[in-house]
Design a protein around this nucleic acid. Structure first.
Lengths: 225, 225
DNA sequence: TCAATAGTGTCTGTTAGACATTATGGA
DNA sequence: TCCATAATGTCTAACAGACACTATTGA
């Protein structure tokens, strides 16, 4: 036990919560853990001797997904009060988003799993999923995440659906477009796209006019203790 | 070098950015590093074998400040691409706030240093100060931080000054009070306090009526790439 | 024609910020 | 009296959300 403790201390892992849209819902990329039972883990690894945390996270993500995430950011670090697949004392969680159309890597050791059907994970990794989701949603209003998951030209409906999917809630159409226009984030192209029935939609591209809005007053979105 | 590398990997520290108001400005609690030169570090330590990250952070904070912080929260983790006083590969940064009236611990190994007069710190620790400040300000609208730094009964002007100090910017008086009233966070007492000249101010106490406000629409506070 | 989707105009309630005004103490 | 600070009322601009309406395609 003492030896195990000593061995346990002094190692750390980088765990990447890889999210991607699948059929209108967010899905999580999981790696098969053992050989026998159906046991899944969030992709993780220990950083190399000269590898930064960010580089290790990018490597873990590429290794698991086959492609480079469109966005990846550190979320937080969990200590050894919760179990982890490794014996590491520390695990640094990263959140990442994969582009649309990530086909399920057939026959490989990985699978895409809808968030609503998550299997049981190690406690520390379960915390990581929750924290990564919350962090990603928190940062969506300051980071142009959604645009990177779409092709260069997109319709405003597609953009809104992407926002709704990532945020996990419905948005108001007119309000969404007004905010978008006020933020000077997109510009229309002269192309249109007819998608079956219904009026064709104009295509837009992401073209931020770097005009940041000023901070507003204090919010007090404080829950009662 | 290889041995140093190997030794460097596999250890980690918990660093606590301890902030407290001093004469209308935020100050940072620093620990004297060496004996000879004037060299300062953010208080840090390695967690014990069975110590969680949060427990280690609380211990480091108490040890440095003599009192328990009114608020402490993990900020983020920095890897070894920046120098740190220790040889640790990883440093987990915590942000903490000390109550008002933290007298400078005279003759001890610690000092309170205004943020505007920070001495040179190890690069990794300098990053931590910036990150801790930003995180604290980000979380002020969801966590009742400012109230805990004030005595149980306080005037609304004191509360506003505390918010301005922590946020680092001026607030609009009438707007601040309206938001406060709408959030049902404080209730008036029947006491008043005359502070020299001017009309006496009514005292309030923190009494949240747990009524969280609903999320508003998308913000798009995105800076241009 | 209808169904479906895109895009827009209008109205309302909320709120932040500016400004002014009253209230109440000390010098 | 004058000055300083507290506390509040009013106005406006911005904005979110609701609703309705027009526009344009395919079936």
């Amino acid at each position: 036990m003492t030896r195990e403790r000593r061995q346990k201390r002094g190692r750390h892992t980088v765990d990447v919560v890889l999210l991607t849209p699948v059929e209108g819902e967010l899905a999580l990329l999981l790696r098969r853990a053992g050989e026998g039972r159906e046991r899944w883990v969030i992709p993780w690894d220990a950083p190399g001797p000269d590898e930064t945390l960010g580089a290790a996270a990018a490597r873990v993500a590429r290794s698991a997904a086959g492609v480079t995430p469109m966005w990846i950011e550190q979320v937080c670090t969990f200590g050894d009060d919760k179990r982890h697949p490794s014996e590491a004392a520390l695990s640094v969680a990263y959140a990442a988003l994969l582009p649309l159309g990530m086909a399920e890597p057939a026959g490989s050791r990985h699978t895409l799993c809808r968030l609503s059907e998550l299997p049981s994970l190690a406690p520390r990794q379960h915390q990581m999923v929750d924290a990564a989701l919350a962090a990603m949603r928190d940062r969506m209003d300051t980071t142009p995440v959604a645009f990177r998951l779409l092709p260069p030209a997109f319709t405003l409906s597609e953009l809104q659906q992407m926002y709704e999917l990532l945020l996990g809630r419905r948005l108001h159409k007119a309000s969404f477009r007004r905010s978008l226009q006020a933020a000077l984030l997109v510009e229309p192209t002269d192309e249109w796209r007819g998608e079956g029935r219904g009026r064709p939609a104009q295509l837009y591209r992401y073209a931020p006019k770097k005009r940041r809005r000023g901070r507003r007053g204090v919010r007090f979105d404080i829950m009662g203790n």
